[in-house]
Amino acid sequence: MIRAMRDAHEQDMLERLKTTPPPAFVFIGRSPLMSFADAVQDFETHCPTAAAWVESNYVETADFEGIRVWLRRDRAARARPR
């Protein structure tokens, strides 16, 4: 039941992201209540479908000691490989 709820929430989030893609994502590592210290790894693990969409439409442009900034590809001045 919990996994079904999680999947429904992820699908809802993904549909909202596709409808109105934000200019950026900021992943804040070492946050409370996360399974992994790396916020991107946590997102990929718990929201794999949404994470795949983010990875195909955004590029990581900065990492400030675990605070990782991903810009939408059309906004990124310079793509930095992960």
Rank of each mutant, 00 (worst) to 15 (best):
M1S: 08
M1V: 07
M1Y: 03
I2F: 06
R3K: 14
R3C: 03
A4Y: 06
A4D: 10
M5R: 09
M5S: 01
M5W: 02
M5L: 14
R6A: 02
R6V: 10
R6D: 01
H9V: 05
E10Y: 06
Q11E: 12
Q11T: 09
D12I: 08
D12P: 03
D12Y: 02
D12E: 13
M13I: 03
M13V: 11
L14K: 01
L14N: 11
E15R: 14
E15Y: 00
E15K: 10
R16W: 01
R16E: 15
R16A: 14
R16G: 14
R16H: 05
L17M: 13
L17T: 04
L17Y: 05
K18T: 08
K18C: 05
K18F: 02
T19W: 01
T19H: 09
T20R: 05
P21C: 05
P22T: 01
P23I: 04
A24R: 06
A24N: 00
F25A: 03
V26Q: 00
V26H: 04
V26S: 08
V26P: 03
F27C: 08
F27V: 12
F27W: 00
F27H: 06
G29V: 08
R30S: 13
R30D: 15
S31D: 04
S31M: 09
S31R: 06
P32G: 12
P32C: 09
M34F: 03
S35Y: 10
S35D: 13
F36C: 00
A37G: 15
A37Y: 11
D38C: 06
D38V: 06
D38G: 08
A39R: 08
A39Y: 03
V40G: 10
V40E: 03
Q41H: 13
Q41C: 13
D42A: 10
D42L: 07
F43R: 08
F43G: 02
T45A: 15
H46Q: 14
C47S: 15
P48V: 04
T49C: 06
T49P: 02
A50F: 04
A50D: 07
A51H: 03
A52F: 02
A52L: 11
A52Q: 13
A52S: 15
W53F: 15
W53L: 10
V54P: 00
V54F: 07
V54R: 05
V54K: 00
E55G: 05
S56K: 14
N57P: 06
Y58A: 05
Y58F: 10
V59K: 00
E60L: 15
E60R: 15
T61L: 00
T61I: 15
T61P: 00
A62K: 05
A62M: 12
D63Y: 10
D63S: 11
F64A: 13
E65H: 12
E65N: 10
G66N: 02
G66L: 09
I67C: 12
V69K: 00
W70V: 01
W70G: 03
W70I: 07
L71V: 04
R72D: 12
R72G: 09
R72S: 01
R72W: 07
R73D: 15
R73Q: 14
D74V: 14
D74E: 15
R75E: 03
R75D: 04
R75H: 14
R75P: 08
A77C: 02
R78T: 14
A79C: 01
A79G: 11
R80S: 06
R80M: 11
R80P: 06
P81Q: 09
P81W: 00
R82T: 10
R82A: 15
